[in-house]
Structure formats: structure tokens, C-alpha cells
């Protein structure tokens, strides 16, 4: 692996706000260290822009460890970029080559309205969760944690679904802008746990209905979401969601 600085050409989406027209802006950086993270490269670009008294590029980010789900960049047409199972914040410049041209765009979906540049509004996800992504348990009246044994494989499966970071890459990568992987992951997590059982039917119907109400598209099995998901949520989540929904509406 080379330690030499690279030259990188960028085409970055700029848009002042939801009402104005966006465009690609070109930048060339000739001092990109291959060990930088992708977002550190953008930090550096912003520093250079501000030194020239230009407006920096807005993008969401926070933990930079791939867990908070804030970062949301479409890099070279792929949600979170070319590295599998990696959020944009954990992508490093060593995955690119000297002289590469990289395009950076925001998540594009009707249910994720534009705010500015690469920042969009993902509050639709919170409303899907509020529709039913919980177990109604009041603080203080829980039984002993070991009172209900849960088979390890069921607990592990629930955990696989629970790792969703809510970033929205599934929506951004889907030709239909469907939020099925996100919604399905929560429904599936709670469907595999006895604690989720009492509200199982109500939850599936409420969350699916809210997802539709927010303007996300339907799933037609493109499977792009699974490929883009930075934590590897399986599309079995969507199959489970459909099963849960059908069972709920038919019973």
C-alpha cells in the first residue's frame, strides 16, 4: 500500500435548499493521504474552501465509526460508496487510486426531502418507528431478565436485525426508494423475541402503513438494499415483514 499523496477529482452535489436547483461542482485535491477517511478528505476540502472564503460543503456525520447512521453519501453512484458493508465514514481513501474522479451525491428519495448540499431530512424513519417499533413496557414493571429464556439462535437472529443503524442506504439504493429493509429489520427483530409477541400484529400493520404514508415505494426484490446496507441486514427481513403483515391482516 502506497503512502504517497494522491490527486483526486471530485464532482460534488451542491444545492442551496429544497427550492433551488442543484448542480455538480468540480474540485481537484492534490494532497489526499491514502490513510485518510473519506470524510476527512471532505473536511480537508472544506478547510481549503474556507481558506478561499468559499462556502463549505454541508454533509451529515457524527460518530465516524459506522454506528450512528448519520453519514449518507452516494459515492460513485453507490450508497456509502464502493466498499461492501462499510458506511461512508469508515471508507478510506486507500480504496481509491491516484487520479480517480469521484462523484458525491445526497440520498435521493421523495420521502427524504433535501435540506442543503448533501444533507437530507430522514425524519420519516422516526415516524415509522413511532408507529409501532417498540414493546409497550412501562419503566419499572419488568420481570427478572432471566424469567423468559430465549434460545440463543433466536436471540442471535433478533440481534442480526437489530444492528440496523437507520442510515437510509436501503432507500437510497432502491430503484423504488422503498424503506422495506429498514422497516422489516425492526419488525423481524421483535418478531423473534417473546417480548414482541403481544403487539406483533398491530406493529406489523402500523409500521407498514406508516412506511407507505411517508411516500416510500414498494419492494420489488431488486435486492440493492442488502448490497448497500453497511451492517449487512439480510433481505430475509423483508420476507419476514411480508409474512408478519399477511398474518396480521388475514387473521
Amino acid at each position: 500500500m502506497s503512502n504517497e499523496n494522491m490527486t483526486i477529482h471530485l464532482k460534488v452535489w451542491r444545492q442551496k435548499g429544497p427550492e433551488t436547483k442543484g448542480f455538480f461542482e468540480d474540485h481537484t485535491m492534490d494532497d489526499v493521504n491514502p490513510h485518510m477517511s473519506f470524510l476527512e478528505m471532505l473536511d480537508l476540502l472544506n478547510e481549503q474552501l474556507m481558506e478561499q472564503r468559499k462556502e463549505p460543503i454541508e454533509f451529515d456525520h457524527d460518530c465516524r465509526e459506522g454506528i450512528c447512521g448519520s453519514c449518507n453519501l452516494v459515492i460513485n453512484g453507490m450508497a456509502h460508496g464502493p466498499e461492501l458493508r462499510t458506511a461512508a465514514c469508515q471508507l478510506h481513501m486507500r480504496k481509491f487510486s491516484d487520479g480517480d474522479t469521484i462523484t458525491i451525491e445526497p440520498w435521493r428519495a421523495r420521502a427524504f426531502p433535501m435540506i442543503k448540499d448533501l444533507v437530507v431530512d430522514r425524519s420519516a424513519f422516526d415516524r415509522i418507528m413511532a408507529a409501532g417499533g417498540y414493546v409497550s413496557v412501562k419503566t419499572g414493571n419488568a420481570p427478572d431478565a432471566n424469567a423468559i429464556p430465549i434460545p440463543k439462535h433466536e436471540a442471535d437472529l433478533a440481534m442480526d436485525y437489530a444492528t440496523c443503524i437507520g442510515c437510509g442506504a436501503c432507500v437510497a439504493s432502491c430503484p423504488n426508494s422503498s424503506a422495506s429493509l429498514f422497516t422489516g429489520a425492526k419488525i423481524s427483530q421483535l418478531a423473534h423475541l417473546p417480548q414482541g409477541a403481544p403487539e406483533r400484529k398491530k406493529r406489523a400493520v402500523a409500521m407498514v402503513n406508516q412506511m407507505e404514508k411517508e411516500g416510500f415505494g414498494d419492494c420489488s426484490n431488486f435486492q440493492e438494499c442488502e448490497a448497500a446496507c453497511p451492517v449487512g441486514i439480510s433481505i430475509t427481513a423483508i420476507a419476514e415483514m411480508r409474512k408478519e403483515y399477511m398474518k396480521a391482516v388475514l387473521s
Binding site: V135, V137, A142, N146, P149, D156
Partner: peptide
């Protein structure tokens, strides 16, 4: 109480094969 509360919410803590935490 915290562990009880979290399990009741559906937090998937690691478990042993027998199903306990």
C-alpha cells in the same frame, strides 16, 4: 432493574445456549 427493563423492551443481549443471559 436496568437489565430487566432493557430485556423487556426487546434488547437482544447475548445469551447462552440454555437461553439465559
Amino acid at each position: 432493574n436496568i437489565i430487566d427493563q432493557c430485556v423487556a423492551q426487546g434488547v437482544p443481549f447475548a445469551r447462552e445456549y440454555g437461553g439465559t443471559l
